[in-house]
């Protein structure tokens, strides 16, 4: 291996280790990654270029596109916010309290990960439609969920829940009880202990989980399109608009919206990475 790679400058050369197989496994990894992920994404990055910068700007700033992007990002943000509050409660409950069927309830939190999104979509729609189990309770109050932007928020809440719970849960589990005992022995009451000692320690995880839920919800398609009603300018999400543009063979327009969303996803991902680095500042890793 060392012989084959000596054409590389020293700083690029892999360290020789006794464990063999780097050439083979890294080769397979990089080839597969390039063919399956990088090349197709390059198409996404380059395709809108046919429109020119002005064309991309026009494609993305059409009122219908703007409305769709606003809905996708807005509903994702609200859903993530709802999950931040209730997800924290669920995580707290699962870590701190004992109750019957706890393991089952713990396991079922992952359902939105495991349940195919189309199934979730039609199930939520049947629940929140005016004649559905939940919808018929809300209908007399004048609240319509299905086929309105509210329905989109229900769907983004559903798919984002496990991200918050599963990010906060391990951090809560790892909190040493000594910390709380110390706070208590110094005279803090339970609320002060929570708000001044526990909450600052779990905040980075909570923010990370919320950001992950947000990122997932922005691009979500399957669980939303059934409940949304898909009215242009009102309850039409950005991914659906991509599908519509593709059906009209407007590849460049579809790619322009796709690229916008992708760039936004990267920014969120970058934020998550920074958050995680920030959250490790006390752990000394």
């Amino acid at each position: 291996m060392a012989g084959r790679l000596t054409i590389l400058p020293a700083w690029l050369r892999p360290e020789r280790t006794v464990i063999p197989g780097l050439g083979l496994t890294l080769g397979v990894t990089v080839t597969y990654l390039t063919l399956i992920v990088l090349l197709p994404l390059a198409a996404l990055a380059l395709r809108p270029a046919e429109l020119g910068l002005g064309g991309i700007w026009d494609a993305v700033t059409q009122p219908r596109v703007l409305a769709a992007l606003r809905l996708s990002f807005g509903a994702a943000l609200l859903g993530a916010g709802i999950n931040a509050v209730f997800g924290l409660m669920v995580a707290w409950m699962l870590v701190r309290y004992d109750f019957p069927l706890k393991r089952v309830i713990d396991a079922i939190v992952d359902l939105p990960f495991a349940l195919p999104t189309a199934v979730a979509g039609i199930a939520l729609t049947s629940l929140y439609a005016p004649n559905g189990w939940v919808g018929q309770l809300l209908d007399p109050l004048g609240i319509k969920v299905a086929f309105t932007p509210l329905g989109v928020i229900v769907a983004t809440t559903f798919i984002g829940l496990p991200f918050v719970v599963r990010t906060v849960q391990p951090v809560l589990e790892d909190l040493e009880s000594e910390l709380e005992e110390a706070a208590g022995s110094l005279g803090a009451n339970r609320w002060e202990t929570f708000s001044r000692v526990i909450f600052p320690l779990i905040l980075p995880a909570l923010l990370t989980g919320t950001a992950l839920a947000f990122a997932r919800a922005v691009g979500e398609y399957g669980s939303i399109i059934f409940i949304a009603g898909n009215m242009p300018m009102v309850s039409e999400i950005a991914p659906l608009l991509i599908v519509i543009k593709l059906e009209q063979f407007d590849y460049a327009g579809a790619a322009a919206i796709g690229l916008t969303m992708l760039v936004a996803s990267f920014l969120i991902l970058l934020m998550v990475n920074l958050l995680q680095r920030w959250s490790r500042r006390w752990s000394g890793e």
Binding site: E15, P239, V243, A255, M261
Partner: peptide, 30 residues
């Protein structure tokens, strides 16, 4: 193993997680 560019590779492997499913299909249509 140890080799340069490892953390870039890790990020790239995670990439599909942060891409909307519709975009995952879109790229192949493109």
């Amino acid at each position: 193993h140890r080799f340069p560019g490892k953390s870039l590779l890790l990020t790239l492997i995670d990439l599909p997680f942060s891409v909307s499913p519709v975009i995952s299909g879109l790229v192949y249509v493109l």
